[in-house]
Design a protein around this nucleic acid. Structure first.
Lengths: 151, 151
DNA sequence: GGTAAATGTGGGTAAATGTGGGTTATTTTG
DNA sequence: CAAAATAACCCACATTTACCCACATTTACC
C-alpha cells in the first residue's frame, strides 16, 4: 500500500472531499474504504490513514510509557483527534468540522500521497510551505543520510 | 537501462509529451511504459523515472528517520510530488498540470537523458542554465572526485 | 532524390470521474 | 419529547480524461 502524488481537490459545500479515482479501488480492497483522519502535530495539516495502518500506529502510541508528559501530550493529540471516516458510494470522505478547522481547510485543498498515509493541506498553506522547503534546500545542513542519497 | 541525449520536444495543447521513439521500446519492455515523474528540489525541472527505478528510490527515502525535519521535508517534496504516468498507445505521457507549473513548462521543452532517469526542462530555462554551467566551468573549484576524472 | 516506413501531432468520442443537491435517517439540543 | 441540525444515501448532470483513429511530417533506405 503506497500512496504518492499531489492532488488538488475541492471541498464541496458539505465539507466532502472526493478521493481521486486512482486510489479508490486500492482503498476499497485494502480496508473497505474505512479510513482514519487525525492531526499532524508539527504542521497545520491532517493525516489520513487506511484503518489497518492506523491501528498499528495507534497500538505503538498506546504502548509508550504514559507517565511521561511528552508522551501523554502526543497521545491526547493524536489519538484524541483520530476520527473514523468511511468513503461514501461516490468515493467521497466527509471531513469533520473540528479537523477542517485545525488545518484551515476551506474550499481548495491538497491531498498529498505520503507512503502509507496521505496528508491533507489547505492549498494556500501547502503552497507557502512548499516554497519554504524549496528555499531551505541548500545542501549545507542536510543530515548524512541525505547527503549520500543519489537520485 | 541507461538514457542519454538532449531531446527537444513540443507539448501539445493537452499537455502531452511524445517520448522519442528510440526510448519507447526499451521503456515498454522494461516497465510496460509505467513511469513516475516528480520534481527536482534544486532546480525548477522534473525527474522522470521508470517505475522500477523510482520504487527503489522511494523505498530509501521512506526508510529515513521521519522525525527529522530535513527528512520530512524531502519526503514531502519528492514523494509528495511523485506522480504515476503511463505511456498512451502513441508513446506519449500526459504531464499533470501541477508538475508542469512547477517546472514552468509551456510548449517547448527539453527531455534530458540522465542515466537511469530523465530530466524535463522548459527549453528556455534549460538554455539559460546550460550557459551558467558553462560559464562556471573554471576548473579551480572542482572537488577531488572530478579533478581526477579523465574524459 | 524519391519513395516507403516510421514518427510526431491533432483532435473526436465514449467512458469514467467529479460535483451538486434532494430526500431520508440519525443524532443533538433546548 | 419535539425540533433542528447533522450525516448518510442516492440519483443526475457536467466535466474531464483516456482511448482511438487519421493526417502531417520527418526519417531512413534504396
Amino acid at each position: 500500500m503506497f500512496f504518492r502524488g499531489v492532488n488538488p481537490i475541492n471541498l464541496d459545500a458539505k465539507g466532502r472531499m472526493a478521493i481521486p479515482a486512482r486510489y479508490r479501488d486500492r482503498l476499497s480492497e485494502h480496508c473497505g474504504g474505512q479510513m482514519v483522519a487525525t492531526i499532524d502535530t508539527e504542521e497545520r495539516c491532517l493525516l489520513l490513514y487506511p484503518l489497518a495502518e492506523w491501528e498499528e500506529i495507534e497500538a505503538k502510541i498506546e504502548a509508550l510509557p504514559s507517565f511521561k508528559p511528552a508522551v501523554r501530550r502526543i497521545q491526547r493529540l493524536l489519538i484524541g483527534h483520530a476520527t473514523d471516516i468511511d468513503m461514501d458510494g461516490n468515493g467521497r470522505l466527509l471531513l469533520p468540522a473540528t479537523l477542517r478547522d485545525y488545518a484551515g481547510l476551506s474550499k481548495k485543498i491538497i491531498l498529498l500521497g505520503q507512503g502509507s498515509k496521505f496528508e491533507i493541506w489547505s492549498e494556500e498553506h501547502w503552497m507557502a510551505t512548499r516554497e519554504e522547503y524549496l528555499a531551505e534546500a541548500d545542501a549545507a545542513e542536510l543530515p548524512d543520510e541525505l547527503q549520500n542519497l543519489s537520485l
